[in-house]
Each structure stands twice: as C-alpha cells, then as structure tokens.
Design a protein around this nucleic acid. Sequence first.
DNA 1: CCGGCGGGCTATAACGTTCTATATTGCCGC
DNA 2: GCGGCAATATAGAACGTTATAGCCCGCCGG
Lengths: 347, 347
Amino acid sequence: MGMGRKEPPVRKRRPTLADVAAAAGVSVPLVSIVMRNVPGASPLNRERVRQVAADLGYHPDQRARLLRQQRSRLLGVTFDVEQAFHGDLVEGIYLSAEAAGYDVVLSAVTPGRPETRAIDNILDDRCEAAILLGPRSSTRSLATLAAKLPVVVIARNVKASAVDCVRTDDRIGMNLAVGHLKEMGHRDIAYLDGRGAPGAVERLRALKAAAAVHGLSDRVLVVPAGPSEEDGATAMHRWLTQIAGVTAVIAFNDRCALGVLDTLLRAGISVPQDMSVVGYDDSRIARISYVNLTTVGQNPHDLSRLAVHRAIARLEHQPGNPRDQIVGPQLIIRTTTGPPPPFSTKG
Amino acid sequence: MGMGRKEPPVRKRRPTLADVAAAAGVSVPLVSIVMRNVPGASPLNRERVRQVAADLGYHPDQRARLLRQQRSRLLGVTFDVEQAFHGDLVEGIYLSAEAAGYDVVLSAVTPGRPETRAIDNILDDRCEAAILLGPRSSTRSLATLAAKLPVVVIARNVKASAVDCVRTDDRIGMNLAVGHLKEMGHRDIAYLDGRGAPGAVERLRALKAAAAVHGLSDRVLVVPAGPSEEDGATAMHRWLTQIAGVTAVIAFNDRCALGVLDTLLRAGISVPQDMSVVGYDDSRIARISYVNLTTVGQNPHDLSRLAVHRAIARLEHQPGNPRDQIVGPQLIIRTTTGPPPPFSTKG
DNA sequence: CCGGCGGGCTATAACGTTCTATATTGCCGC
DNA sequence: GCGGCAATATAGAACGTTATAGCCCGCCGG
C-alpha cells in the first residue's frame, strides 16, 4: 500500500528552441545563435541561455537543422556486419569525417538486409556522398548511383568513370611477401588460391607478377583452396603428400593460413623450421601470440582517410587526379617465417 | 583533342515533392498521398505520379518527413565494431524493427569513439528509444539516459528501474554444460575464468551454481585465465603440469577455448579422447570444421527480437511485466566433448 | 540637431514534408 | 430540383531549425 511508490518517469515532449527561448525570456533566433556559437549575442545572454538549455536538457534536433541548411554534411557508409575488417574501416571513417566537420550515417549489410536496401537508406537520409565498403553490387548499378551523388568504393576496383576507388594494391603486397621469402633463401613456394572469393583473381595475378619480378615464375606452385580456415586446412591436407622441396606457403588470406597452420601442426611439421607460412590481411587472428602469423597487412586508417577526403573533394568540386587510389600494404613479419631447412636448398 | 570528351556528371539539386507535383500537373499534397500509399488519390493520378517520380529519380526526404510527423519511429542502436556478436544482433534488430514498422539508426562504438558520443548521436537524431548492445557506461548514466527515452540494454544486467534488460541466463548455460559433461561420465572439471572481462563474475557464479546442482561442487577447479585465445593458451599451459584426474575443461568463452585446444594439441593430448573442452558463445570460430567446438550458444535472434519488442512496448505505454528478460541459451554439441578416458574414472 | 553607424536583438520566411480543413465533383434518393 | 454523401483534390498551416533583413538604441562627427 501507498509506501514510496516510484513515480512513473513522465517523458514529456523533448524541449525545442522555443521552449528554451521562452524560459530564458529571449527570442528563438537568439537561442539558435547561442547554440551555434556564432557572433551576435551578448556575453550576458549567452551565459543565461546556455544555463537554461542545460537545465531543460535541450538537444538540437539534427533533422530540423539539416532540413534548413542547404547542405547536410552527411556521409553515408555501407558496411558488412560479418566482415571484421569493415569495423576497422568504420572507425577510421568516423575519425576523418569528424575532423573535416562531416557526420556519418551508418547502414549495415547483413544476410537478411541486401546492399540495395542499405544504399536506399543512405539516400533517404539525404547523405551528400556515399562510401561503400567492399560492395557487391554490379558496376552498372554503382554507376547509376554515382549519377545521384559522389560514390567512393573501398576495397574493390570498380571500372566506372564516376566512381572513385580506394584500395590496397595486391601487387605490392605479393611483392613484399615473395621478396621476404626469397631473401630468407626460399625458392620453391606454394600459393593457396582464394578460388572464387572476391578479389581472388586479382591476388593470384599479383602473385604471379611478383614471382616473375623475382625470377621465380617456374618455382611457384598454385594450389586451389578458398577463403576460409576450412579451405586452407583441406587444401593443405590433400596436398601434403604430393609435394617435395616446397619450403614456404603463401595463403590467400589469414583465415586460410590458419587452416594451413593447424594442418601442419597436426602433421608434425614445425613452423617455421620445416615450413614458412605467410598470410594476408593482418586480421586480429594473425596477432594472437601462439599464431603470430607473418602477413601482409592492409592499412585501414589510410584507406578510410583517403576515402573520406576523396568524397569531400568531390563534394567541393575538386575531383583531383587519380580516380583510383592505391594504398601500399605492409609486410608484418612475425614468427611463422624463417630460413628454409638446410637440406632442401636445391636452387 | 575534342574527341568524345565525357560530359561531367551534372548533379542538380535533388528533386522534391514540388518538382514531382509540377511535372505531373497536380498539387503537392496529392503527390504526398501517392508516395505514402494512403487512400485519397484516383488510380489514374496514382499511376501518373508514380511514373513521373520514377523518371525524376525522386527520393522522399526522410528528415523532412520525420520532422513533420509527431513520431519518428526511429530506434537508436549502439554497438561495438570490435564485437562480432554485435553484428549478429544488429542483423536481428533490423529484421524485427522493419517488421514492426520502425527504422533503425546505427551508432558505432570504436576505440576512438566513446560510448557517450555514440549515445549523443542517437539523441540528436531524434530516436524514440535506444537499444544498447553490451554498454560499458555506468548504471548511473544509463539511468539518466532512461529519463529522456526508453532504454533497452542487451547482454548486460543493469540494475536501474527505468532500464530494460534482455540477456542470456548464464545459469542455464552453465547448467547445460555441466550437465552434458556429467552425463558423459565426467566428474572432475576445470573452469577457466574470464578474470575481469565483462560478465566474467556472473558466469563464474553461474558455473558454481551449476556445479552445486549436479553435486560436483568440490570436484570443480577454477583457474584464472581471461577472455582471449592467448589467455586460454597461457592458463592451460601453466596449469597442465599441475593437475591430474581432471577430464574436462569449460572455458569462459570460445576464444579462450581455442587457446586451450591449441595448447592441448601441442602437448599431444587428444581431444576428446583424453580431454573434453566446452566453449561459450558459439562464435563463428567454434563452427570451423577442424575446431568443431562444443559450446553454449546465445540466441542473437531471440535477444534482438525481444529487445525491439520491449522498446516498442515502452513507446506504446505497455511496459509489460518483467523488466529483465531472460533468453535461454542452448548447448551445441560438436566434437570436442566425449566420454572421459576409462582409467580416470575415480568417482 | 541630424545623419550615419554598428552591436544586439527580433520578425519573418524558408527548408520538404504531412496534417487538417475545405473545396469540387458526381451520384443517389426523394 | 435539392440535400446528403463519398471520393478526390487542394489550400494553408505546421514540424524545429537557420538565413535574411530589419529594428532599436546609443554614440559619433559635423
């Protein structure tokens, strides 16, 4: 019975500029001036209005604000919730955008929410430009989108004249990986291909180019695998019995490399004494101490910074020169690579 | 020289209702009626307006629309880009929200973007309710937030009367894990604690309760570890030499369990013949074929569905009964658990 | 004493949409 | 022929904010 019943939290309509103005005894535009920190109000009123606004718990309505202004200063970003790497990119995008005075609207792609819907969302929200992380849409539909607003694609090369791209150059990455192995004395190298995964074709081509540069074209063995741990493990398992002389493996990506490592461990082949392994991506898994995978890392910070700046440049009508911007990857040398075992140096 | 120069893509101001109305020769409100699919327009005009809108590439301005309406029907969601599980939850939230006619505003928490900023963002965007995934803010500040709008927290228990919680019950999960092991014949079980990780205390308490239920209170050994692969590997390594008789390990989470598996593999202890291992979370890593980890899985679909419905119920003034909703986890039996080796049955 | 100037403040309109109220039909029954 | 009704269309105001222009007042030089 009536003892200390909690009052229900009465949530009234959120306060507006008019409420603050009335409470402070000034006009609405003056409050607006104070909230925006622009000149035109006396220090006295400025202080008073600030106080009243804080007391009322006033928050400016972002939507009304954007509606009135000519520009929204909004960047729409689509990303895939399943890709850990996209998380790193999102982080970088927030940073660069806020530094440039732009705001970010996120729109996720999930198994149940196709990319088209994610894109429609950022269109509805009046974003001035779109930054798409690893989009799967056709070149054609991306070009259509680019007719409506500036589009910057990260981590995919889209051959449409109106679409900007920012991506890592696999040729540089593979060059680093092969160069590192050659320097240590390896000659016979196996490459586990991504087999149909996005970007696999480019990466294979890059590997072949790197092999040619280092004069190892006929020493490189390409094995079909895939993008997952399972693919790496299966391919390595099947292939273990068939090779001899190969002293190093480059995997399509880190997950694939992880499967390779597991198979080698179970087969009693020690890494890096008997076999060197190089991954690709520098995903979080590569950094675990007991994995400690040598890998080619993309630079999410640079990728996102370039993408944001490129989008803003388009908005401010300074297209800039290269439509397709390349970020150099870096080789992160950990403990899965080392010199080949002495008895196997046959070249 | 002048051959086939591409015309620069002229991006004009985006079309508005007024533009469509003028082009179709009808009034603005009529176009609005058509675009919203509400009664009040003739089939003839409906068709015409649709056609014209499509031709102009008209997209309704979500911000203006929400400004005019009394309600925004917007749910603000904060999530952590580093937590893969949050991705699964986001997916479910989109699904449930769209089914209920609500829209979702995402706001990410990253290493460089603190939770407070993410929350301010959804406040500025006029969301009607907030759904926070594993928030790290203090109970106090969450309560303050709840005074402004309904707040539903997923995956954390917040003891504030105005904050709803939806979470998995660790007691059920641990009960399943211990029960499964006991059923197979295990008696002496080690638990690798999360040591300071969010939720570790509750999970440890739940384990102890489960042990008590199964009459194994004095057979369970608690070992400090941590939430990462590395923690699991280190703890297992250090601890391997000190135990005897223990036939099963329950890890704080899957990542920790992965470290355990790796250490066991390197030590030549086979799983599950010599030792059973149970994880917690059913993260993607647990499903890899060569890992194939028996684990306690949270149900992201149910969690997100309940959270969305709870938020909407609050908005529509039907608070409903339990402020703290529990979703039952499920045991996913894979191949890292089996009967204990015969010689070790001592109880 | 007057015209001009500038700081501080406010009235008003506008952003793109939707709500409310009101007109304009055509059609029916009496 | 006329009131009533439903269906369709439009005029006008409103949402919360900001841009523009103008008002008021005290001050200065002439």
